[in-house]
């Protein structure tokens, strides 16, 4: 059932390196604006709070350019969803270009952070689905790290079966819900 992540990494690596050298110098490194504060650290918890980019001054122009790039429907960066097979957390080959594009972007923009949310369809145990969603998010994170992205830039979380995109109980809806979603700083 579980096929390995068969991304054609050779091609990916080349693409990433090419992208790296071309975008290198004009990197603006503008501070990002957070719409929401960092995860509220509920009192008494022993956990380390998740670090988020600092709220900074409003030099919006280069920032806006980057965000526009992320949303441009012609750019592979606007593709933010990786779909999975039932009960599987293996990334399919067809997602290689999308993952490579996001890796390039993160390497070129080290101040940008990414949140990967893993999701499942509603069948089966909620807790098992929460764990499965975590694996799906982790799979995308690992693929990005193998392409040279700094781990500190990526956070992976699971929403299990709690946040479906489609409410139906047919295979089409289930397939739509078995996914990892990619969000950038300012989008979560």
């Amino acid at each position: 059932m579980r096929t390995p992540t068969k991304i054609t990494l050779a091609a990916l690596t080349l693409a990433v390196l090419a992208g790296c050298s071309s975008t290198g110098p004009e990197q603006p490194a503008a501070p990002t604006e957070d719409k929401k504060p960092a995860t509220p650290s509920t009192g008494g918890a022993t956990g380390a709070p998740v670090t988020q980019p600092q709220v900074g001054a409003k030099q919006m122009t280069p920032e806006e350019a980057l965000l526009a790039q992320l949303k441009d429907p012609n750019s592979p960066l606007s593709k933010r969803i990786v779909y999975f097979d039932y009960d599987s957390y293996a990334i399919k080959d067809s997602y290689a270009p999308i993952i490579s594009a996001h890796a390039k972007f993160l390497i070129a923009n080290p101040k940008f952070r990414m949140l990967i949310q893993g999701n499942t369809d509603e069948r089966g145990s909620r807790e098992y689905n929460l764990a499965l969603g975590q694996k799906r998010a982790e799979a995308v994170k690992r693929a990005l790290m193998l392409l040279g992205v700094n781990e500190a830039q990526i956070e992976s979380v699971s929403l299990g079966e709690e946040k479906p995109r489609m409410m139906g109980t047919d295979e089409a809806s289930y397939a739509e819900n078995r996914r990892s979603e990619i969000l950038y700083s300012g989008e979560y």
């Binding site: 918890a45 956990g47 380390a48 998740v50 929460l130 975590q134 699971s158």
Partner: peptide, 13 residues
């Protein structure tokens, strides 16, 4: 309500 576990990532089950 008191928090038992709030570590990085998910805390569940």
């Amino acid at each position: 309500q008191t928090v038992v576990a709030n570590f990085k990532g998910s805390n569940s089950a």
